[in-house]
Amino acid sequence: MNKSYPMVMRVLVGVKRVVDYAVKVRVKPDKTGVITEGVQHSINPFDEIALEEAVKLKEKKAATEVVAFSMGGPKCQEVLRTALAKGADKAIHIEVPDADASKLEPLHVARALKKIIENDKFDAVFLGKQAIDDDANQTGSLIAGILDWPQALYASKVEPDGKYLKVTREIDGGLDTIKVSLPAVLSADLRLNEPRYATLPNIMKAKKKPLEKKSAKDLGIDVTPQTKVLEVSEPPVRQAGGFVDDVSALITKLKEKGFIKA
């Protein structure tokens, strides 16, 4: 084991409760949002990857403690218990009433995190690259900005190296590699790892792990929305155009449409 790992690297991992990726979401008839009541929710898939990476670092003795956090309504505790079952040591729930949860913005999460980190030292924040509900892809960069920490987003490989993390990132034209000094913010891309399943014994054990609750009010942060939703709608539906019989019929159609020169 590399002796130059920091003596105590504590990792804070963000987990968001989102509508499960396999659910086909439906817009409310009054166009104010999507229907989330009675719909299967789970941990945002990218956050599971971020958590898995933190737990793996702990198993390699490169991290000493993994703390999961989630901000939102009371049901966020379910995803925090799952995070505990997958290897987090403890959990912090920043609770907001359900009515306000849908108005939370990544900026508010970043503000909450700043307070938590001011109270209790962490060496890294790990997050998923985006949440699959709002698809915002903001929180990592916002947190890094608000803390003035370096950021390593879209990580597909993470190598701790003393006081640094060497991170291979997925960028538009391929991959790049950067080095960020700790403390740092990291966001996980799809191919960073394969998250583990929570086993039944670990789910039982997770019930005894500490889960701390704090409110946005306790933290003294401003959660005034800056973005007002005016209308939520479904995108125009595409009509299926039907089948052609064979390749030559397909080519004829493409010629008609001018994609292939006749």
């Binding site: 900026l107 970043a110 903001q138 960069s141 916002l142 890094a144 900005g145 608000i146 987003l153 997925e170």
Partner: peptide, 18 residues
């Protein structure tokens, strides 16, 4: 990847939700 990594970082400094 460039814009997504930069805009929120600047936004945090300007107290603005991107």
């Amino acid at each position: 990847a460039f814009g997504r990594g930069l805009i929120p970082r600047v936004a945090a400094k300007l107290e603005s939700s991107p």
